[in-house]
Simulated assay, not measured.
Amino acid sequence: MKKQRAFLKWAGGKYELVDTIRQYLPEGDQLIEPFVGAGSVFLNTNYKSYLLADINHDLIELFNLLKSKPNEFINDLKIFFQPQNNKPEAFYQLRDVFNYSKDQYLRSLLFIYLNRHCYNGLCRYNNSGLFNVPFGRYKTIYFPEKELNFFAKKAQNAEFICAPYQEVMKKAKKNSVIYCDPPYLSPNDSAGFTAYYSNNFGYEEHKKLSKLAEKMAYKNNIPVLVSNHDTDYTRTLYRKARHLYRAEMRRSISCDGEGRKKIDEILALYK
């Protein structure tokens, strides 16, 4: 199966790790992802149906619009991917339009524009809920038309909802499989990249998630696969998983290519 890239850039995206994740994901009729992000696991698996969720309202609205009117949406998006918009002045003007617009269709178009033109494709909001990632200064910008079309086609078998992970996991039924990709704890157990949307996913949330994974698997008979950095802490956190698998992956959050070191990842399977 040829790997499919997501149309969004995404910090912590699973494109590089997707073969390993596929190897350990149990079979079932439905895949549930409470932290869907850009959707690399969704795009590279073949379940009959999908329930895909995130707490980022802009992301879920975007996915639903692309699913419902792909041709119109992709054509309208092309307008923003012009050379004159790959300049700081245009970027900051369009970022302001995004931040103060109540028009969800326009916000969804601009969400992709910002994602592809901003620094490292980061998705970050300030405490007021305003997108605040600076201009990325790329010489050329790729328009992900092929990836958008593939996503829209596959999305016909998916339901996208904006909800916290606890609600989403509890929607699992017989023959559902859950894959959790929460904001990671950093490799050195410091704060790390845990600020996600306007939420902070720290140690307590990771503990709650591991407890819920145990409950879903061992009481409700729903298998759960969770990924995170491989550290002493996460190995303790997931000690009740049936299997712990290790995988090596290159993280892509550093702007300095030399600083992109390989970090071991852990996959905890509860079943």
Rank of each mutant, 00 (worst) to 15 (best):
A90R: 10
Y138G: 01
C118F: 02
K146D: 05
L130E: 15
Y113C: 02
G136D: 10
P144N: 12
Y119S: 08
N127W: 09
R124S: 09
Y119W: 13
R124I: 14
L94P: 07
F143C: 12
Q93S: 07
R116D: 03
G121I: 12
F135I: 11
Y105T: 15
N86S: 07
N132P: 14
F135H: 05
K139Q: 12
L109S: 00
R95F: 02
E147I: 00
C123N: 07
F131D: 04
L114V: 14
L114W: 02
N115G: 08
N85S: 08
Q93R: 13
R107W: 02
L130I: 14
N99V: 15
S101R: 00
A90L: 05
F131M: 09
V97P: 08
N132S: 15
A90G: 10
F91I: 03
L110I: 04
K146V: 01
F98S: 03
E89A: 00
N120K: 07
A90C: 01
N115P: 08
Y113Q: 07
I112G: 03
G121C: 10
G136N: 06
S101N: 00
G129Y: 09
G136I: 10
R107V: 05
L130A: 04
S128C: 14
C118G: 12
S101D: 11
N99M: 06
N85T: 07
Y113P: 09
